[in-house]
Design a protein around this nucleic acid. Sequence first.
DNA 1: CCTACCGATCGGTAGG
DNA 2: CCTACCGATCGGTAGG
Lengths: 197, 197
Amino acid sequence: MARIQIDKNSSRKDVIVSKAAALFREKGFKAASMRDLAESVGVEAASLYNHIKSKTELLHELCFGVANRFMHKIDEVESEKVTALEKVEHLIRFHIDEMINHYEEVYVSDREWKHLSDPYLSNFQNQRRMYRKRFAAIIEAGIKQKEIKPIDAPTAVLILLHAIGGIESWHRSTQKISAEALTENMVSMLVGGLVNK
Amino acid sequence: MARIQIDKNSSRKDVIVSKAAALFREKGFKAASMRDLAESVGVEAASLYNHIKSKTELLHELCFGVANRFMHKIDEVESEKVTALEKVEHLIRFHIDEMINHYEEVYVSDREWKHLSDPYLSNFQNQRRMYRKRFAAIIEAGIKQKEIKPIDAPTAVLILLHAIGGIESWHRSTQKISAEALTENMVSMLVGGLVNK
DNA sequence: CCTACCGATCGGTAGG
DNA sequence: CCTACCGATCGGTAGG
């Protein structure tokens, strides 16, 4: 049987990582076993180790993949020539989009990073802390320019990020409104909660 | 040594349940072992089973304890003679208060209920679904009375509940603003995102 | 409440 | 990629 794929190894690994995301999301990192994962990939558990080093490596890849995308995005947004409030809205829309289209990875990275071990754990926590600080700084700027009402910026960031995490429930619900409607509703409520008057 | 406690068994169990909440919050239900719990209580693992039936029983108690408080509260709020928007604000304040003062139980009930097993699991999911429906109905009423802007009510509920879950980050942060300041900031942003104009 | 211990399951390795 | 298997750890029980 002809194989179109040239780099079989890397493709196989991608499949494993993506199945791992789905499994870790569904059961949690600790409760998901490598035997579960093997079954969902369609091989024996031992065979997984020809493509990956360890279970934790899968978590690294998921967490840092997501973290990198967010870091890249905030670089981009910071250099935009728009109002602070518009920057905030762009970040909100990016988070919503990520949560809609890369649900499993984002969810796992958000809830299961605690199970990373230590060179990676502190690295991840630092990136996360940094990201939130930069997000808060944009809100702070918006407050100074009176576009955003005077609130505690770190609290606002925490509300925004967690609120968007609620898209989890949307994914799991049976009667979903459309992704577009969801996005506009969320933006309306979240940006509406920020604006001055 | 005199013992003031009359019902030793029930007191001992309360300690175990509360230590379990802290441990499950910190490590996650699956990753927290009964040996960890025993150590934090100050006994051997086997001794725990004189007070509890199983590890899962601990999770039941935590999840349903929290669920019952919320169900009781929404009963109360529904019968209040105030505007729909005020009812929503009361629920928001209750959620914030619960998340500030019963952090560990609420957090565990929110994130670890997946590990319940099945008579309890469906029961819990039903209560949760019911609660959200009733919350959404209040918002719907507020929209009809033009107190609340026309948004998708289930989406609004999802945003509110998850946003308040963000208090987790406040608990873990080193430079906490006061509980009162946190509450007023959150109410301002969340209620502000709902009001019509 | 403890010592001693169980069967099951886990992540991972050896060797082909 | 598989068979066979490992040491560790888990939730829980027996018996005192």
